[in-house]
Design a protein around this nucleic acid. Structure first.
Length: 373
DNA sequence: ATGTAC
């Protein structure tokens, strides 16, 4: 951990972890906002639109623009009924299609069964979305803590599904409800607007979690199997916390709660992802840990940097042997493993700072993004 | 990131 400003700005990264300068400038700028008590950069910090991605903030006020338009975005890990000893990868790839479309099943029934409140965004429920979102079938690669692994409900003999998605248009509407008239200005806690915003946000967070569950079910419908939730954590949210009898608002942007069970730290599609157990020492990082490898290149650079050396066919197959389903060519390049930092650096930094213990690692087999051009 | 924008 590097103390950029004593008790005010902390960076949970080692000296050898390359961190883009712009993201540190953003971290500093954010720390100067009115009411900001503590700003923490995670080891996967990189520049974002309203502030850095991969950061947690403890603040007296509420700043929606720091969270952005995808509140509730997160990752869910599901155990599937597919045996890991019987891979039918080619057959599965053929069967996986249409996940970007409105669900074919009876949504009303599903929403009732799963306690999802109806909203203007029902049609998007169960769809993956764009950007870095995906649904990925994976295989346990290594178990570091057998006891926690088993207690979590995982089993080496079965494949798992990792779903990274968010709140789709619902979060966008929430974001705009504040920023269209108030921009980057804060909400004052206990004001009607603040209460209303947080209430709406909490609905959005629930919706996004349900979205991941339905994506998992739709994915497994196509492979004639089922899925069982192991752990789900969002990485874009604002929650209230109490510290020495005072109320604060904990903002997490591309950072995962460290006080709510096991967490999947996402690699790129060409590397392992890690299931970790946050430690009680995470108080020092505002009860937050990194959400993934973190971008190395911004989206606009990727195709230009990679196209000469790697074609579509190359990128559809990763070094780790997994297959990527992504018919959108720009997106295929934007989300190439090369565009991300090394997940092992992020994991090692967190271990060395005492933030996490490893439970298991997972190797991707099929990463579904979109069949639409 | 987004039922994507002048």
């Amino acid at each position: 951990m590097i103390e950029i400003e004593k008790n005010k700005i902390l960076l949970f990264a080692s000296e050898k972890n390359w961190v883009e300068g712009d993201s540190l400038m953003q971290l500093k700028k954010t720390s100067e906002l009115t009411g900001m008590k503590l700003s923490c950069g995670m080891p996967d910090i990189h520049p974002g639109k309203g502030g850095p991605v991969g950061a947690s903030f403890i603040c007296e006020l509420i700043y929606p623009h720091l969270i952005g338009n995808d509140a509730g975005c997160g990752a869910g890990l599901f155990k599937t009924s597919l045996r890991s000893g019987r891979l039918k990868t080619e057959k599965w790839i053929k069967k996986l299609k249409g996940l970007e479309n409105t669900p074919e099943r009876d949504l009303d029934e599903w929403m009732t069964e799963n306690n999802v409140e109806s909203s203007d965004h029902d049609k998007a429920l169960g769809t993956i979305g764009g950007g870095n979102h995906f649904a990925e079938l994976n295989k346990v690669n290594e178990i570091f803590d057998q006891k926690i692994f088993e207690e979590a409900g995982l089993d080496l003999k079965y494949l798992n599904l990792l779903v990274h998605s968010g709140s789709r248009g619902y979060g966008e509407v929430l974001y705009r409800s504040h920023t269209s008239k108030s921009g980057a200005s804060p909400l004052v806690p206990d004001s009607d607007d603040a209460i209303n915003y947080i209430e709406k946000q909490n609905k959005v967070l629930k919706w996004a979690k349900s979205n991941r569950k339905l994506i998992a079910e739709r994915f497994m419908d196509r492979l004639n199997g089922d899925s069982q939730l192991i752990t789900d954590s969002n990485h874009n949210s604002i929650v209230s916390i109490k510290q020495s009898e005072k109320n604060y608002w904990l903002h997490r942007k591309g950072a995962v709660p460290a006080d709510d069970g096991l967490v999947m730290v996402l690699g790129s599609r060409g590397t392992l992802s890690y299931l970790v157990k946050p430690t009680n020492d995470c108080e020092k990082s505002a009860w937050s840990i990194a959400h993934g490898a973190g971008r190395k290149w911004n989206r606009g650079n990727c195709r230009g940097r990679l196209e000469k050396k790697w074609g579509v066919k190359d990128l559809e197959r990763t070094d780790i042997g997994s297959t990527v389903i992504c018919r959108n060519k720009d997106l295929l390049y934007e989300e190439a493993p090369q565009a991300y930092k090394n997940i092992d650096m992020v994991i090692n930094d967190m271990i060395n700072d005492g933030l996490i213990e490893l439970v298991a690692s997972f190797k991707p087999l099929i990463t579904y993004k979109t069949r639409k051009k």
